[in-house]
Amino acid sequence: MTCKKKSLMLVNVVHSDHQQAMAERVSLSSMLAKSQNDLPAKTMKDSYLEVHLPLGSEPQLREKYLTFHNTVRFGRILEDLDSLAVLISYSHTYNPELKRSPLSIVTALVDKIDMRHHVIYPDCDIKFTGHVTWVGNTSIEAKMHMSQFREGAYAPVLDATFVMVARDPENKRAAFVNPLNPQGAEEEKLLQEGEANKSRRMGMSRASLLKVAPTAEERKIVHSLFLNTLDTQTVSFRSRILPPNSVWMQDAKLKGLEICHPQERNIFNRIFGGFLMRKAYELGWANACSFGGCRPTLLAVDDILFQKPVEIGSLLLLSSQVCYTEGKNIQVRVHSEVFDPLTRQHNTTNVFHFTFVSDRDVPNIIPETYGESMLYLDGKRHFNQTVEH
């Protein structure tokens, strides 16, 4: 009985501490800039950070990152990248005259993660570096690089680009960030690349299959898939047969559920974005693994959009779908939504896109409905973007 009372008291104290911290943050609103012109320009060096993960020199840390197959859990790396992107953004907006930052910086988008080496060793130190490469009025692009110490030197493992947004202390409205002043030709090029990335994302949004019809070439692809599944014996639009070495799209799904506990919250009492990415990746990997019949390797992560925050106590529903395959490649889309058991409402929070490669050719994925055909084309677009990058 005594232990139970102590536990309940601890929970109440933690909740009270969090409420007090949030109340204190509200008072920081008066420190927000009225316009971006009121803020001093920063350089890319101002936000540069280097962080070491001593997996090789600290074996006790290794357990958190270790997989059953003696590799590193990539979901944990996603959590670390998300945390680093936040720290980089706060470094860019740092004001030495203020004891605390009035900004709430959250992840808006994972633009791209490209794997340069597909094996991450669990017994070698890891180094993360990164800095701000582009800013808008209220948004920040942070580029990060991860390398691992092997044979006396650090070798590149991945490159990542995150887009962060600044909000007011209550995380209710946008807030201005410091402008960026590039120094030299190399930094000018990075800034231009950031602007190009923004234009590319806007173009992809305008061309989304949720907004406009497929292109003429894409319509031909869908019709060809349809013709290949018609039963020639019945000559009926409704009679469909599965071609050899193929799987219906509806049979290539995997689902999961997470109860969102306070342990995974950020300072705004919402679920940490890195946790969401880890859970989505692990489900997507399992989906690709069961579909391909072997342990897949990650090629790329792209276009992870954070549409809505996930509240503490939410029921988080994750649905993974193999939506496109080509040779040994598997394109997986993971959709996450929160379910309110009281109102019975579902709200989409995130959409994740992962590209995996198998060690053998995988079956063709075949859509059966128009909606599945749109998923197929969307998966094909993401795969082509990964290949062309």
Rank of each mutant, 00 (worst) to 15 (best):
S320F: 07
G56R: 06
G273P: 01
R73L: 04
S83Q: 14
P40F: 11
R219L: 14
Y370C: 09
S239K: 10
K172Q: 14
L316T: 06
V119N: 13
N347A: 15
C3R: 14
N364F: 02
K45F: 08
P169L: 03
T138A: 05
P156E: 10
L375H: 07
E195K: 10
E50K: 13
I365W: 05
A288M: 03
V165F: 00
L81F: 01
M374I: 14
Y48Q: 04
E337P: 07
S290D: 09
H353M: 12
P309M: 10
A142V: 14
T348Y: 06
C124H: 13
G293I: 07
V165Q: 00
K45S: 11
A153R: 10
P296D: 05
F383E: 06
L299W: 07
M144S: 09
Q307G: 06
Y65E: 02
N181P: 09
C260M: 08
L227I: 01
Q183P: 02
Q19W: 10
S101A: 01
S239P: 01
T161D: 14
L10V: 13
A166W: 00
T133L: 04
R200W: 14
L53M: 05
V212L: 02
R278I: 04
V212P: 03
D231K: 10
E151P: 11
T229S: 15
V11P: 03
H131K: 12
R333H: 13
L78V: 07
I77Q: 00
K308G: 02
L109R: 06
P243T: 00
V11H: 15
F306H: 00
E58P: 08
L81Q: 06
K6L: 09
E337H: 13
L315M: 04
F237D: 09
S16D: 12
